[in-house]
């Protein structure tokens, strides 16, 4: 198993390098530093200003190969910055990106962790509930509601939620942020509710399929023949057996706990990494965007390896080799 994890880590590292290469192609070769400079300071900026901008941001090195000093090129610098988690400075306002990440991670986690837990609890419970009543009108109604819910764009949930809860009912603040924990809860309530609403359709339907597939298995019949009730069958037998698809679903969500939700954060004024991404889009801040993609895939790759390890805990039949 240790050998397996090591091999996965090596392959994961290779994937990270692939991501960095892709980003280099996209942001240095396809969109050249000059393009980036033009977008940052304006199309009609004088050539001197563009030269200046490029030099200030360290984009004035040779792209791939520097005959005088092989370690001094944009390619090497790109890989060095990312792999040492230095990340450099924002293209928009010269703030070190590391500092931004450190500031934004907290609010993102504060939003995403409760959202993630609620979402999981709601969708697994509802999925189990609907699957318990499979083949009945409860099940059909449940599936119809899910398809209905997932056909609504997340934007409408946000707009509708803000309008209804914030403006008409006046239950929670519409948006905003405060550092003190007691106030945060009031600010987080609405985005969490909206987030759960926006995702439950797809999630419940997914879990229902998993659970219905599982309830058709022979061991479920055995459990009933022993005298287990519906609830016990679902929670004690079906749920543990469905852990592999659940884990797969859960672990790939983990990177987003850190990178945050782009839509929810910017809409509700939460100063997390999602808002930071939106700022980067609006400010043509390519450096920050590159870092966000890199962090996202790094976390995703680590989460995938963690999933494989967790599989062995969820199912004694799984052996990693």
């Amino acid at each position: 198993m240790i050998a397996y994890v090591l091999r996965r880590l090596v392959y994961g590292f290779a994937t990270v390098l692939g991501v960095l290469l892709f980003l280099f192609f996209l942001f240095f070769l396809y969109a050249s530093p000059e393009d980036i400079a033009r977008r940052a300071i304006g199309e009609k900026a004088p050539p001197a200003a563009i030269e200046q901008w490029i030099a200030n941001h360290g984009y004035d090195r040779p792209l791939v190969w520097n005959p005088e000093d092989p370690t001094d090129s944009l390619l090497v610098e790109h890989f060095r910055r990312m792999l040492t988690f230095d990340f450099g400075r924002s293209d928009a306002d010269d703030v070190p990106i590391r500092q931004r990440l450190a500031e934004g991670a907290g609010p993102s986690l504060a939003l995403m962790v409760p959202l993630f837990l609620f979402e999981l609890l709601v969708s697994v419970t509802l999925g189990l509930f609907v699957a318990t009543f499979r083949e009945t009108y409860i099940d059909r109604a449940g599936v119809a509601i899910c398809v209905f819910a997932m056909s609504v764009s997340i934007l409408l949930y946000i707009i509708g939620g803000q309008y209804l809860v914030g403006r008409v009912l006046n239950w929670f603040p519409v948006s905003g942020w405060d550092a003190s924990p007691s106030v945060i809860a009031r600010f987080l309530a609405l985005p969490v509710i909206v987030g759960v609403l926006a995702s439950f359709g797809e999630q419940v339907r997914f879990y229902r399929t998993v659970f219905v597939e599982e309830t058709a298995r022979d061991y479920v019949r055995t459990a009933r023949a022993k005298g287990c009730g519906d609830a016990r069958v679902m929670w004690r037998h079906v749920l543990p057996n469905a852990m592999i698809p659940i884990l797969t679903q859960v672990v790939v969500a983990i990177p987003f706990l850190f990178t945050g939700s782009i839509l929810l954060e910017s809409f509700f004024g939460i100063p997390g990494l999602g808002s930071m991404t939106v700022d980067a889009i609006q400010g043509n801040d390519f450096a920050t965007l590159r870092v966000m993609v890199f962090i996202g895939s790094l976390l995703f790759i680590l989460a995938q390896i963690a999933t494989d390890v967790l599989y062995t805990l969820a199912d004694p039949r799984v052996r990693l080799e």
Binding site: Y219, R221, R224, K226, G227, P240, N241, D315
Partner: peptide, 19 residues
């Protein structure tokens, strides 16, 4: 079920909870 009457099945492989 399981008290007055018990039942065993054809496939002992799939009839037991694997986890």
């Amino acid at each position: 079920r399981g008290n007055d009457v018990s039942m065993i099945f054809q496939e002992p492989m799939t009839s037991l909870n694997p986890v």
